[in-house]
Each structure stands twice: as structure tokens, then as C-alpha cells.
Design a binder for these strands. Sequence first.
DNA 1: TGAACATATGAACAGTTATTCATATGTTTG
DNA 2: CAAACATATGAATAACTGTTCATATGTTCA
Lengths: 114, 114
Amino acid sequence: MDENDSIEVHQDDFAAVQQRLPDEEVLYDLAELYKIFGDTTRVKLLCILFEGEMCVQHLAQLLQVSQSAVSHQLRILKGARLVKYRRDGKTVYYALADDHVREIIGCGMEHITE
Amino acid sequence: MDENDSIEVHQDDFAAVQQRLPDEEVLYDLAELYKIFGDTTRVKLLCILFEGEMCVQHLAQLLQVSQSAVSHQLRILKGARLVKYRRDGKTVYYALADDHVREIIGCGMEHITE
DNA sequence: TGAACATATGAACAGTTATTCATATGTTTG
DNA sequence: CAAACATATGAATAACTGTTCATATGTTCA
């Protein structure tokens, strides 16, 4: 049957694709990274920090959410090394960790504004 | 007090940042887009389709998940216009909708493999 | 040191989401 | 047309996630 041929051909594809497919762990990390961008509050935070560093209470004001909520989200962003922070007395200033964040946001923007 | 000065300066920042900040709607859409990439099954699907088109059952085999689960996820990807499909008899072949997906995945990869 | 302020964090709750199961739709072939 | 196959989809469930509330930690200043 050509049905079998078809299957064999596809099984070859499997091997090829499976080989070129990134490791399970990498794909997991990739999903975890995007998951972080997949929340309105966090995306807003990142976009704000796009303009420069800002302290927690001002971030909360701008986002119109509680200080606690912002802090929780900043913790997640910190954990993913997307933001860095510095302490100045009582206040803590957050900023983007590096330019990757800008690129990632830029990529997404291109898609939705096309 | 210089406390007041500080507040005034920051309020100016608010205005400036708020002005430069993308519209609420855009930020929502951006988060929605990334949300889609923020799932292991979907990221895997997209990575596989990176290599070329593939039919549903083979996608399910490669991902080691049920046909139903793949179909559900493909529906979401379809809804976000990240994949396209063509029917050939009984089987349906899915493929990446355009090169934006490649760029977005590429951006993320850079970040996690640095 | 203690009061006031800024931020962080744990627990709990509500809303969301991915998978499974059962079944429907659509297509080919005998 | 009926059987077999490929895919799609609705409902239900289990797991996950973001916010809130209460409180803890850390810092400054009188």
C-alpha cells in the first residue's frame, strides 16, 4: 500500500524534525519566558521600564494596581532576569536587565501592528 | 522639602511615560500574543512547524499528546493567525503563517541561550 | 530606639486554562 | 450509502496563576 510508503516517509520526517527540534528543556524554558510576557501587568511594567528606571510605588500608580501586586510581579520579572534593581534608601528602583527585553517586545509589536 | 521636588519630577515622568506608553488595547493584544507562546505544547508545535508543514496526527505523535489536545491548541494558534492550514483529502496540514513567528521564537531563543 | 515609610512575601481565593473523554463533522473508498 | 479514517469541538475536571489582605522586612530620621 502507498499508505505504508506515506507512513515511512513521514517517519523519516519525524527523525529529521525530532533531531533538529531543540531539547525538551530548552523548549520548556522558552515557554516559561513567553509566559512572563503573557500577562498585561507584566508587559506594562516592561514597557514602562522601557523608558527608564522607576520605583515601585510609581509603577503601581502608573499601572493602577496595588503595591503588593506590582511587587509580586516584579519578583517574577526579577527571577527571569528581565529586570534589575538598585536600592536608594527606602525606595527600590527597577530597570530592564538588558536589551533582549526590548527586542522581544519589539518583535511582538511588529506582529500585532501589521 | 526636597521630597516634594522629587514627587514633582516623578509626576512629570508619569506624564511623559504615560504618553509614550502604547495604548491599553495594544498592550493587551501584546500580552495575548505572548500568552500563546507561553505554553510548552504550543511552543513545540510552532518549533516543529518551523521545519515545514505537518499533519495533525503526526504532530500529536511527535509531541506525545492526544489528537484532541493538539487540535485544541492548533485552534488557538489558528485564531492568533500564527499558523495556516490546507486540507488534502482527509488530512489537514498545518504550517507557520508567516515569518513573524520565526522572528519571535528566534528572539526568545537568544535570551535563554545567552 | 521608635515611628513612619517603602518594599517584599505568605496564604487564600477567584478566575483562567490545558487536557481528557465523548462525540460530531468532514472525507474517501468499497 | 456505509464503513473507516482524520480532524474538530463541547463539556468537565484538575492544575495553575494573579490579585488581595495581612504582615514581615528593611531603611531613614527625629
